[in-house]
């Protein structure tokens, strides 16, 4: 069976998908993943998940974030002031980045 593998590079990071392995069970999936996906890249932790347990929904099936204007959800829509606490500015910058990534995906 196939196991999807998620790697965390260092403590505190997110586990992100990095590949998969064939293995007969969870124990062997972990052993194989250690070598196949953790032997060179910095690795703090790996997760293995049976591929058949992964549910998927993709952009053909659903319009992520909607198709009508939802700019009211974004900090950028509010322009009554330009002075903000630093964490508010940081949040807006992250949102601008996410929105830019979304727009790129639409092209």
């Amino acid at each position: 069976m196939i196991w999807e593998v998620f790697r965390q590079e260092k403590p505190g990071d997110y586990h992100t998908h990095c590949g998969n392995v064939h293995a007969p069970d969870r124990e062997m999936a972990k052993q194989f993943a250690v070598i196949q996906h953790g032997r060179r890249k910095p690795t703090e932790s790996l997760w293995v998940v049976p591929q058949e347990e992964v549910g998927e929904v993709d952009a053909d099936e659903v319009a992520f974030g909607g198709t009508t204007d939802k700019s009211y959800r974004w900090a950028m829509a509010y322009t009554s002031s330009t002075e903000h606490a630093k964490e508010v500015i940081a949040s807006q910058q992250e949102q601008e980045q996410a929105e830019a990534d979304r727009q790129r995906g639409d092209d």
Binding site: P11, A75, Y78, H84, E87, S91
Partner: peptide, 28 residues
Amino acid sequence: WEPYAHAMDKVCFEEGFHVKHGEDIMAR
């Protein structure tokens, strides 16, 4: 606690909208 910090990543990402929205209501 890593899961708490991870939750804060997403909370802080979203929260800028809340504060600016609140400020917009106040400004009006």
